Simulated scan of single mutants.
Amino acid sequence: MNIFVLNSGSSSIKYQLIDLDTEEVLARGLVERIGEPGQVPDHQAGIAAVLTSLGDARIDAIGHRVVHGGDRFDRAVIVTDEVEAAIEELSVLAPLHNPANLTGIRAARAAMPGVPNVVVFDTAFHQTLDAAAYTYAIPADLAREYGIRRYGFHGTSHKYVSERAAAFLGRPLEQLKIIVLHIGNGASATAIDGGRSIDTSMGMTPLEGLVMGTRSGDLDPAVVLELQRRAGLSVDEVDDVLNKRSGLLGLSGYSDERDVQKAAVEGDEAAEVALSLYRHRIRHYVGAYAAQLRGLDAIVFTGGVGENNTLVRRRVLRGLEFMGVHVDPDRNEVASKSERRISPDNWPVSVLVIPTNEELEIARQTAALI
């Protein structure tokens, strides 16, 4: 079965064609700058160009990444007109993402009317959170009216990585207590108990939680009020500051963790402070989630930084030996793209590096539905 996986942005289409029988990627690519002068005019034309490049390759189904499913979708669903309408309604919760995702869905349905389409939501995996984990302590009527609650994101990655971790350890997922650290330019932590997400660091939007490349992460809400009252910033300006000008960028001038690390090594004090805060916040969530899980079997690093940065992994978990957590320095330094253990064999908590594969997870969920 060949699954065509699409991730549509506002001006781009990222795609993979995956043979699920072998899990081989038959084709992959990226269409960029859609709508710009001299480029592909729209998503319909972009998908047509992709299909032309694929030639006579068979496509049995199309799987789409959609960022926000609100509290309506706790699993992948086959696309219908009603599902399209629901995604459009939920755009108020993800105005930068859902409309772009929906544009790709509509273009794909128009281009291949006989092929089933499936949407996989970033938020769906976290719909198992209890009310205590997803509720904000604001007036309940306001929360209900405006859909204000914690939803969580990166769910497709957290689901895939936790299942791969269980397979690596040779233990049933239902028996494991796992913390997954998806650390890239965007970053989130999730506590997974028996395969269920019970807590996660991102909230109503991807802004909450860990310090990220350009996002602030956790913040006293009064900071927003101060920026409006004293700095005279508008709502949109505050949004821009917290989402695009904060995080590592705001602290050090660099959004890429590798650049921050290099600057810190060269004696840049601001960069060193940024890295310390970055690691402090991750360690904070590790401790909190170990408590929520009431035990811990594994910590799993994934994402661009989590998979590749040996220093971040070592520094984040340094000093947690009292929790049964230890990183073997030799194993940690091994450069590899494979799933691997970086803790000693005989320690209570397994520390793993599991490369994420959201496209494959989307393909699997798509195939399971059709």
Score class of each variant (00 low, 15 high):
7 N>A: 03
8 S>A: 06
12 S>Y: 04
27 A>F: 02
30 L>V: 09
39 Q>P: 12
40 V>I: 12
41 P>S: 00
51 L>H: 00
57 A>Y: 00
57 A>F: 01
57 A>G: 07
62 I>A: 03
64 H>F: 01
73 F>G: 06
87 I>V: 10
103 T>P: 07
104 G>P: 00
104 G>F: 05
106 R>W: 01
109 R>N: 05
114 G>H: 12
118 V>T: 07
119 V>C: 06
125 F>A: 08
128 T>H: 00
129 L>H: 08
132 A>R: 15
137 A>G: 14
144 R>N: 15
148 I>H: 09
148 I>V: 15
158 H>R: 04
159 K>C: 12
165 A>V: 07
165 A>H: 09
166 A>E: 11
167 A>P: 10
169 L>T: 11
172 P>T: 14
190 T>E: 12
193 D>W: 12
194 G>K: 07
198 I>R: 07
199 D>T: 11
200 T>R: 00
200 T>Q: 02
202 M>F: 00
206 P>M: 11
208 E>A: 11
208 E>Y: 06
208 E>Q: 09
217 G>M: 07
219 L>N: 13
230 R>D: 11
232 G>M: 08
253 G>S: 06
258 R>V: 03
277 L>W: 10
279 R>Q: 13
293 L>E: 08
294 R>G: 12
303 G>T: 04
303 G>V: 04
309 N>Q: 07
312 V>R: 05
314 R>W: 12
315 R>G: 12
316 V>M: 04
318 R>T: 15
320 L>Y: 13
321 E>A: 13
343 S>R: 07
352 L>D: 07
363 A>I: 01
365 Q>C: 09
365 Q>I: 12
368 A>E: 13
